[in-house]
Structure formats: structure tokens, C-alpha cells
Design a binder for these strands. Structure first.
Length: 587
DNA sequence: GCCGTTTTCGGCCCGACTGTTTTCAGTCG
């Protein structure tokens, strides 16, 4: 039996990125960038392209930017035959691990080719061996210093490699920021890049500075305690690695270019490229130094000014992913709906609907969690401890759950007498079993203020089974929210297989809220699914999943994810005060 | 190879840093 391979959009994009590198290697003009653009188009396309192709044929490629006739033909061949000739032809010329080799600092496609042709180096291991034997420095255009750099870079790469979860490195970033702000020659400072766009992970830290004495700033940064290695340093640009393994890019720009530089270093890259093309079409030039007409600077001091000159309203960093923000901004500028969303604000949450206590796997009492939530500015929380089938957390059975309801009532009264405002709701994180049924009976669930249901086992069911399982849970009239619907753990566990469209339709039909779990390695729903919910009119909640008093600080990462998914306040159920929240839940 | 209020042909984002290339290519973001 022939099993035809199924490609995810990411896998297709990776093949196209590799094509770009293969052409670059051959010194071919323009094709590399065409393939890069196509790869990005495929990568950010919402529906799986192979499924679309099976259903609609060639029409599937029409909506993918960067994919024209030629690349569409390649993809078609890939879908029907499992491979395509152009790729294999190029790959035969230089049959090496391009992705691995080019991930080494300072090694690009041209170097890869030279290494293959002269030393038959196929992968990072080959390169390491050759470098240790001193064979690299004997090649033309390579010297001892390059060889040493390669070895050092391989060593660094082996140590880390992955992107960092933003919420887990946030404290490090803030600390570094404070250290640099203390340098007297620094006038102003901002962390740009994916940090400023609040992506779930960051590859490095981009720091933007204005200063009248850039050289002094750079030399003082190099002397900071966290700095482990200097890749390069100049008067405007410095690149280092911290002891924690994160790379940092520092740029010093003139104050008059601040806005243009901030815009450029915030990205995303495709967003910037699109802006530059727009400038170019008007005969202008946009760079990190400003928007120019010939030598005349049109804008650059603020981001607002740059966008305005290009015909756009200000676009929030969380939206700059080339997922329709420029079109929406343009419509807004022309007074046509729909414009840009009025994003949920970082101070808009009134409550938190998923909180664990020491009744199960949390570290603190109901009372301590309530105090911490109140200190974080919330008006209500739902206590949602695990249920009995999660034995490792000492999950609650029906009897214990009802005891907890009474304990919550007592705690509320006690807090009220003490003049405290926050209200505690009795809830639960009910376990969804393999068949979609729940491990707590309906009679008990109906006595709770709020019921969240979640999957914690059988992560590898088929797409159909998993979707049916979740839909069945949503059909339970007591289930108000599905917690962390896809169960992914960033950098650790993939999403469960779900027909997300079907899940969203079922949420709409049953009036079930879908959660954005704000814990930094969950952020589940992820941004692109949030956007689908917004479009479908499905309500979401943003919850901390707090297991300790200090965890309420993670809510901002959930809000950021909601914003990245274009969510407005009306899309998020716990932006409502308690009195109105009840009306949005089931019965 | 893609794409079009400059265009179906002739362009394709822009600039900094490194190394050894004495005038620039390669890499990176």
C-alpha cells in the first residue's frame, strides 16, 4: 500500500526556504527572494494547502501571496508524487544539510557550497571535524580566525538552539534593560523585535538606544556582567550573547530617526518589507533612519509619523504580522469598514476564571490566592481545582468539591467582613475523559458557579476522535468554558489533533467559552485561533491558570495573545464585571 | 520566480559589520 505523505504548511514552507538557499548557493539572481516570499506566504496561510489543493485543485494557490505559476507547479508535483524534480536537481549538486549548516553564525549558502565543493562537508558534524583538524583555514578565502569562530558557534549552537519562551525570559530581559538604562550616556531605550510584538517565543533581544556618545554606550554594554561573548561591535551596532544563552542586538540611532528605527526593529520582517515597497512605489525610501524623498527626510521621529506619511493610522506592534493589518489600516484611513480592531487593553481584565489552590496541585490556600488576585487588580476569580481522575494532583471527587463550595462561601463572607472586595466563584477544572464524558456528575456540576472542562490525557487520539471528544464536552449544559483547548506546551508538546473550525462552530452553537490560557508555555488558544474565534463571534476568556499567588502576573501574556489575534474587549468574557459575566455563561 | 495607481516587462528592501577581496562579497537582521 502506498502511503502518500501529508505536508503541513510549515513543512512546505521549510522546503521552499531550502529552495531559496539552494538557488542562492548557485548565485542565481532574484529567485532566492521569490522562494523566500512564497515560503512566508505558505507559512502564514491559515488553511492547510495540501487539503485545499485536494479539494479545490489549482485554485488553492490563488490566495497565497508569493506563489505564482512556477512554485504552484512544484507544490502540485509534491502533493501528487511526494517529491519534485527541481528540488532534487538542485539538491544533487550540493547534497548537504543546508538548514543545519546555515544555522551556524557566519555560515550562509555560499560558504556551504564552498565547503561542499572543496571538502565534501555535508553537515555540522563534518564541519566540526574539519575545523578541528585545521582544514578550513587551508582553503582560499578562509583563515584561522574564521575556523575558530565556526567552532565556537557550533559549540554555542549545541548548547541552546531553541527559541526562548517570552514569559520565561521576561525577567532577564527587564533586568538587562534596567542595567543599560543606568548607563549615563543612554538617552532613551526600548526593547523592540518579537519582544515588543509579544510573540510567544523570542529568538533574540533587540535593543534600540538613542545616545550622543554611542561608542561609550557600546563599550559599557560589552562590560556588563551578563555578557558572555561578543559577535561584533561597532559604533551603531553591537551583537553579543548573554551567559543565559540569549543573543542581544544593540543599535544606537539618532533621536530624529527614533520612530523609523523603532518601526524597523520591531518588525515583523514581512511587515517592514511591505512598508518599504509602499514607500518605494511613491519614489521614497524607507530605512531605519527615516522616510526620505531624495535627501529630504519626510518622517522618522515617531512611528505614528512614519505610518501617517505612508497613508496609515498607527498600527499596534501585536498586529504587525502581515495577517491583514495593512489592508485593514488602509480601509480605516479611507473610512471604509472593517478597519483595525480596538484591541483589548492590558488593564481590561476584571476577573480570572482558572485558578488552582492547595486543595489540589496549587501551592496556596483559597484565601491567599484571593488576596493575591485582589492585589493584582482583579474583581473576581474562579477557584477551579482539578477533579478525581487526575490522581496525581489529588483531584477532587463530588464530595470534596461540594465541601470546597462551602469553604468558598465561608471565605467570601470572611473577606467581605474584612472590607475586601474581590469575589470568589466556586468552579472546577473538570477532566474530560477519553470519550468526551466528564469525571464529575451533572448534579454536582450544576451547584458550581462556573465549570471549566479540560483534556489532560489521551493526547494522541485521531483528529476525528479528538474533535468529537471536545464537542461532546461542550454539549454538556454545565460546561461554561473549555480550558487550554489544544493542550500544547510550547517547545515541549504539540497541539492535540483538532478540526479547529468544527470546534469553533460547536462553541458558537453551544454557547461555550474557549479559553486563552495565559501561562507562558501554553498561550492556548494561540493567536491565529483567537482570530478565528473573533471572526466567528465566539467568546473567549483569558485566564492565568495560576498555581501560586505570584502567577497572576502571567495574565498579560494572555492579553497579548488575544491582541495578536485581533480580539477586542467584547470578545473576552472576563473583561465584564461580575454582574454581567453571569449572563454570558450557560444557565 | 513573482508581480503591477509607474509596468504583462523589467524591476525586485535597506543598511551594518566582518574579513582579507585592496574595493567588495557574504552574512545578518
Amino acid at each position: 500500500m502506498i502511503r502518500r505523505r501529508h505536508f503541513s504548511n510549515q513543512e512546505l514552507a521549510n522546503i521552499l526556504y531550502e529552495m531559496a538557499a539552494l538557488y542562492e548557493m548557485q548565485g542565481v539572481q532574484f529567485k532566492p527572494r521569490a522562494y523566500d516570499r512564497a515560503a512566508h506566504g505558505v507559512e502564514s496561510h491559515e488553511e492547510n494547502l495540501q487539503d485545499l489543493f485536494m479539494e479545490h485543485g489549482e485554485a488553492a494557490f490563488a490566495g497565497v501571496p508569493g506563489v505564482g505559476k512556477g512554485i504552484a507547479d512544484h507544490l502540485k508535483e509534491l502533493f501528487t508524487r511526494g517529491h519534485f524534480r527541481e528540488y532534487e536537481k538542485l539538491k544533487r549538486k550540493v547534497p548537504v544539510d543546508i538548514v543545519g549548516l546555515t544555522s551556524i553564525e557566519g555560515v550562509g549558502p555560499k560558504t556551504v557550497r564552498a565547503l561542499w565543493e572543496q571538502l565534501r562537508i555535508r553537515d555540522v558534524d563534518d564541519l566540526e571535524r574539519a575545523a578541528r583538524r585545521g582544514m578550513i583555514s587551508k582553503l582560499p578565502h578562509f583563515r584561522k580566525r574564521t575556523e575558530e569562530k565556526m567552532l565556537k558557534s557550533i559549540e554555542f549552537m549545541r548548547k541552546s538552539g531553541k527559541r526562548f519562551i517570552l514569559g520565561f525570559v521576561a525577567a532577564d530581559v527587564e533586568r538587562l534593560k534596567r542595567m543599560i538604562e543606568k548607563i549615563p550616556e543612554v538617552d532613551s531605550l526600548e526593547v523592540a523585535g518579537s519582544w515588543r510584538r509579544w510573540k510567544e517565543t523570542i529568538g533574540d533581544i533587540d535593543i534600540l538606544i538613542t545616545s550622543k556618545k554611542p561608542k561609550a554606550v557600546m563599550s559599557k554594554i560589552l562590560a556588563l556582567p551578563p555578557v558572555a561573548h561578543v559577535y561584533g561591535t561597532g559604533s551603531t551596532k553591537t551583537n553579543v550573547r548573554l551567559k543565559s544563552g540569549i543573543d542581544v542586538d544593540v543599535r544606537v540611532v539618532p533621536a530624529k530617526s527614533w520612530g523609523a528605527a523603532l518601526n524597523y526593529f520591531t518588525g515583523s520582517k514581512p511587515h517592514n518589507i511591505a512598508l518599504r515597497s509602499i514607500a518605494q512605489k511613491r519614489g521614497w525610501k524607507l530605512s531605519e533612519y527615516g522616510l526620505f524623498k531624495g535627501k529630504k527626510m519626510l518622517a522618522g521621529k515617531t512611528e505614528e509619523e512614519v505610518y501617517k506619511h505612508l497613508g496609515f493610522p498607527y498600527i499596534e506592534p501585536e498586529l504587525r504580522e502581515m495577517s491583514g493589518e495593512l489592508e485593514a489600516a488602509l480601509r480605516q484611513a479611507q473610512g471604509k469598514p472593517p478597519g483595525l480592531p480596538k484591541l483589548t487593553g492590558y488593564k481590561d481584565l476584571k476577573g480570572d476564571l482558572q485558578v488552582q489552590t492547595n486543595w489540589t496541585d496549587g501551592s496556596a490556600s483559597i484565601e491567599k490566592m484571593a488576596d493575591a488576585a485582589e492585589a493584582a487588580g482583579l474583581e473576581y476569580i474562579a477557584v477551579t481545582d482539578h477533579t478525581k481522575s487526575l490522581a496525581m494532583t489529588h483531584g477532587l471527587n463530588e464530595k470534596r468539591l461540594l465541601e470546597q463550595v462551602r469553604e468558598i462561601a465561608r471565605t467570601n463572607q470572611k473577606r467581605k467582613r474584612a472590607g475586601k472586595k474581590l469575589v470568589i466563584l466556586a468552579g472546577s477544572e473538570v477532566n474530560i475523559q477519553k470519550d468526551g464524558s466528564l469525571d464529575i456528575d451533572d448534579k454536582t456540576l450544576s451547584k458550581l458557579d462556573i465549570v471549566g472542562a479540560a483534556i489532560h490525557s489521551y493526547f494522541d487520539l485521531s483528529r476525528n476522535e479528538q474533535t468529537r471528544r471536545l464537542v461532546r464536552a461542550m454539549e454538556n449544559k454545565n460546561v461554561d468554558i473549555i480550558f487550554h483547548p489544544t493542550c500544547r506546551l510550547i517547545n515541549a508538546r504539540p497541539e492535540i489533533q483538532l478540526d479547529i473550525e468544527q470546534v469553533i462552530r460547536a462553541a458558537k452553537r453551544t454557547g461555550t467559552v474557549l479559553e486563552i490560557d495565559a501561562y507562558p508555555d501554553r498561550l492556548d488558544l494561540r493567536d491565529e485561533y483567537v482570530k478565528k474565534c473573533v471572526e466567528a463571534g465566539v467568546l473567549m476568556s483569558i485566564d492565568s491558570d495560576a498555581h501560586a499567588p505570584e502567577h497572576f502576573s502571567v495574565l498579560k501574556f494572555g492579553i497579548a495573545t488575544a491582541r495578536r489575534g485581533w480580539a477586542e474587549r467584547k470578545d473576552i468574557v472576563n473583561t465584564l464585571p461580575l454582574s454581567k459575566l453571569r449572563g454570558k455563561l450557560k444557565s
